[in-house]
Design a binder for these strands. Structure first.
Lengths: 229, 229
DNA sequence: ATGAAGGTGTCACGATTGTTTCACAGAGCG
DNA sequence: CGCTCTGTGAAACAATCGTGACACCTTCAT
């Protein structure tokens, strides 16, 4: 699920095996084929997160596969890295203009290819780059300002949102009311300590689901913490 | 305003001029500097859409500039294309791992560089690459200046159009009023924050359809975002 | 030029929503 | 059992947002 899916289209078996091995070690789920038409089928069947595509392959040529992937709405936005033996600049430019996102010339080092694909993934799926916090069954997307629990979206007030974010940034850790006031309200706020309790309650009320235990733990005479459920 | 902004950091004057010329011809707004520290300043002052960065420059080294751009939250997501004379694979990989998005080895052809940067722009700001944006039931064609919802064409004022385009380029993401002023009005505009509200309302009014929920989400004390409906 | 039409930026007011405090009930603990 | 600490409802208070009105500015055709 959180493994990025990679579709590798390469007809040099030895090379394909090497690349597949390296990307599996990097945590990718790799699907491999040596045929252009089959690649298109596989891509629509289960849309990959990134495609590595040899320029010269059997069946449909690499550049044609690239064009078709772009034309299908389903796969139009999947990043493509072209792979080729050619040195000619014209081909490189043509590849990029056809819609490839990057271009690597053979011979290349697997390490560089991995680095390039990782660079693309960083750009495409920020969710995998750690922009979304997840603790237990809770999920918090700071840029979208969105919280989910077990898949259902949850509405929180501004303070409850900041409170939860702070807890999720330090899961399991216990914070005193004073620490929470500093972290969530900003230091220098002269607010009644017990006010924290009220917001804790509202946070609890916000994220509660029937039949699911409360992840906010009260630590008597110490403070509160968020536990993974 | 709707021109993509490119920051070019290169100390070879002749080369820099050539590159600047080519990208201006491509419709980019180019800012040029030969100093690493100045580059960082310029980048935070007005966040560019893409950075072309020479590895070896005066002041702070290219790789250090790259690292610092990544560290600053404001510029962390800006794509960086590294430029270098070195052929060594180690350097290329190091560059990519530092956070560069792409890598071009000198000598390179301006045409290839342009193609690579365009490939990146297609990803980052599709509207500027002449693509049609689609979010939920909304459709926006930047070149034709046309917006549709559920097939029906919609008339929007210039500001509302830019506002919607910006939202559609980053669907789901929440923008504060300040961020919207920077992105849609251009930074340096000393406009009342609440004016954004008024244009949000005009945008809502413009795209509303009877019986269809409003895709513009208000996030109290945070800003606004566009949700797919 | 001139007027009409449309777009833009401000403001003020009311409505909505969120925040803080307080008092009391109840839970935990020795 | 008595003490301390926490949960909770309600109410006063505060911040934020939506909206209509309006003055001013462009644009554009006459």
């Amino acid at each position: 699920m959180s493994q990025p899916r990679l579709l590798l289209v390469e007809d040099d078996q030895a090379l394909a095996e090497l690349v597949e091995f390296r990307f599996k070690a990097e945590g990718y789920a790799v699907t491999r084929t040596d045929d252009g038409d089959e690649a298109l089928l596989l891509a629509t069947e289960q849309v990959p997160d990134v495609v590595i595509l040899d320029w010269m392959i059997e069946g449909t040529s690499g550049i044609e596969v690239c064009r078709r992937l772009r034309r299908d709405k389903q796969t139009a936005h999947v990043p493509i890295v072209m792979l080729t033996a050619r040195e000619a600049e014209d081909d490189r430019v043509r590849g990029l203009e056809t819609g490839a996102d990057d271009y690597v010339t053979k011979p290349f080092s697997p390490r560089e290819l991995v680095a390039r694909v990782n660079a693309i993934m960083r750009r495409i799926r920020p969710a995998l780059a750690g922009e979304v916090l997840a603790v237990g069954d809770l999920t918090l997307d700071a840029t979208a300002h969105r919280v989910t629990r077990r898949g259902t979206t949850i509405a929180l007030g501004p303070t409850e949102f900041r409170l939860l974010r702070h807890f999720m940034e330090h899961p399991g850790r216990v914070f005193s009311r004073n620490q929470l006031l500093d972290a969530v309200w900003g230091n220098g706020s002269d607010i009644e300590l017990r006010t924290v309790d009220v917001h804790i309650r509202r946070l609890r009320k916000g994220i509660e689901l029937p039949g699911v235990p409360d992840p906010v733990r009260t630590v008597r005479s110490a403070g509160y913490s968020l536990e993974a459920v």
